[in-house]
Design a protein around this nucleic acid. Structure first.
Lengths: 323, 323
DNA sequence: TACATTTATACTCGAAATGAGTATAAAAAT
DNA sequence: ATTTTTATACTCATTTCGAGTATAAATGTA
């Protein structure tokens, strides 16, 4: 067995949310797709993968990561194409990091981008995005029809129903990755054509919509994983507070949760939930904004982490009826 | 930058549950610790990591994996020591696979082992394991006391409370990994001494208990991750059925869930939950066992996967009060 | 055969959580 | 002075959950 030519890449979806806009730190180059901060794991010097990531991100973007969590390890051949060496195989370990936008960004090519630019169908705060009915579902129905046989068509139909919620199946804001993968396989994102082109014939590059902004390598896939994980975690861990300023109003908190989840929430119930959970405490001070009655400023009660095992942010009926 | 000397290892926690005993497939060698089926990722031939795993497991154990799920990628220096080459760095990607014990095991060194042999403190079905009060908590209190400073002691105390549930904090059966990591850091599992011995001085190898059966490399850590993931997933996905025969009684189903979760459940409520969820359907046939009234045989309704987004098995109050 | 034991299954009941309001207060804008 | 906007307190019906009770249907045993 010869020495395998693998290298391990560490990618980070560094997320923040200021002003109701969930954003991700991307590295932009002219003539190239946006990329996540990305660097090699150095086995000689990095004691753990996460330390390798922190070092790398620090060097490349000037960021000192705080909350960090491993997402998934992708190793699919053909979905991480490097222009340098097509034969080299890269296995990439994706991470999610949460931060505020108060750190200086060292490199000018590194910028905050709203994440819905990459996933416009994921933002249901105002209305169901029109593109779902207008572009996505028609194209997916064609994808179902083009299945090689009836059985495959059935499988595809079910995936479309579950992912985009037809016939009474409700929208599940956590299925971000499943939706992206479905669109990829249906050839509706630019990455598919790119990867397919490098793979083989690039025959049917027909007139299909290219949904959302593409990213380099498999970085949009990693970002989809990050959003899905964050949307899920919101509900049972107080992670939003990693994205909040030290003090905030309850409406600001709610807007941030809504921005991340891509959904609107019931205000009074949100407030009840947050209060009942003991997640925040009032400061006695009040915000002075332009309109409306001034709202009290709250701060996160870090102690809950020690008092209760799994405090989260219910977003509506979710998860779990036994078996 | 020189070519990094990394290889990628693929490890699988292959789980089954027959006769109320959750088991894991281990490779046993005389004079060596038990190991999970483990093999290298071959970038030249394996199109994806998961395919590499399936190939490897098939060759080594004769198993054809069905349900498979990636767990986590571990790369800690010093926690995956190979006797062959101490300098080589192994990054291992852990997987969870679920199966029934109806396949032939090819290699004789490969055997089913009850997983509570490795985690005896995780089985609360009959009573809270006595070893927690008798051995674990005293040793952990010493660990707290030995902290380098007051602040570190406080952190350690909190971890002990959250992991093993003191002062009214309830036992959380999902914290399997957190508990193992805590015991590792406190030097209460054999792997710690082994890794420390290879690392450095091996000074205080004192009279500490060695809890549970040790495993090779970081395989017990991977198994802990697998159990934790499975215990969590039970609640929102119908994964138990991967471990059941095609037909089963509701009590058999309940016993399997209990075995995995390490908890006893309320029978009538379990039945209500399963029925309300539409997870099973009666076959009209009845079991003929020795004692008691015969129970109806049920089968899993695979269709639920297409009807409802996230059917699971509530195990009691869990997860999620908003933020 | 009568009765104890074991398991299955149906049903009840109260507490808590959830979803969807209504009502009222306190500010700025018109 | 009135409208608009936001904050915040409360209500109410429904659902879910945890914990039982009651009854049925088998086997084992006195």
């Amino acid at each position: 067995m010869s020495a395998p030519v693998v290298s391990i890449g560490l990618s980070a979806a560094i997320v923040s949310a200021e002003g109701e806009r969930p954003s991700v730190l991307v590295v932009t180059h002219e003539d190239a797709e946006d990329a996540l901060p990305f660097g090699p794991f150095d086995p000689a010097h990095d004691r753990t993968l996460e330390l390798g990531l922190r070092k790398w991100v620090g060097e490349q973007t000037g960021f000192d990561l705080d909350y960090t969590e491993q997402l998934y390890t992708f190793g699919d051949k053909g979905r991480h194409l490097s222009s340098a060496d097509v034969s080299a195989r890269v296995v990439s370990v994706g991470y999610l990091a949460l931060t505020r936008q108060n750190q200086i960004i060292a490199a000018t090519e590194t910028q905050w981008r709203g994440w819905y630019q990459y996933f416009p169908w994921e933002d249901w705060r105002d209305t169901k995005p029109a593109m779902i009915e207008e572009a996505i579902l028609p194209a997916l129905r064609k994808f179902v029809k083009d299945a090689p046989n009836a059985e495959a068509a059935e499988l595809r139909r079910d995936r479309v129903r579950l992912c985009f919620g037809e016939d009474g199946i409700p929208w599940d804001e956590e299925k971000v990755l499943e939706r992206y993968e479905l669109l990829y396989e249906a050839g509706l994102v630019k990455e598919f054509l790119r990867d397919a082109g490098a793979r083989a014939s690039q025959k049917a590059a027909g007139k299909r919509p290219a949904l959302g902004t593409a990213m380099m390598f498999d970085h949009r896939r990693i970002l989809a994983t990050a959003i899905a994980r964050l949307r899920g975690k919101l509900k049972y861990r107080p992670v939003v507070f990693e994205l909040m300023d030290p003090v905030f109003t309850l409406l600001e908190l709610q807007r941030t949760v809504e921005a991340l989840a891509g959904l609107k929430l019931h205000k009074q119930n949100f407030r009840r939930l947050v209060a009942d959970q003991g997640l925040v405490e009032g400061t006695g001070k009040f915000s002075t904004q332009a309109r409306g009655r001034p709202a009290e400023l709250f701060r996160f009660r870090r102690e809950v982490l020690r008092e209760r095992p799994a405090p989260g942010m219910r977003l509506g009926a979710r998860r779990g009826k036994m078996v």
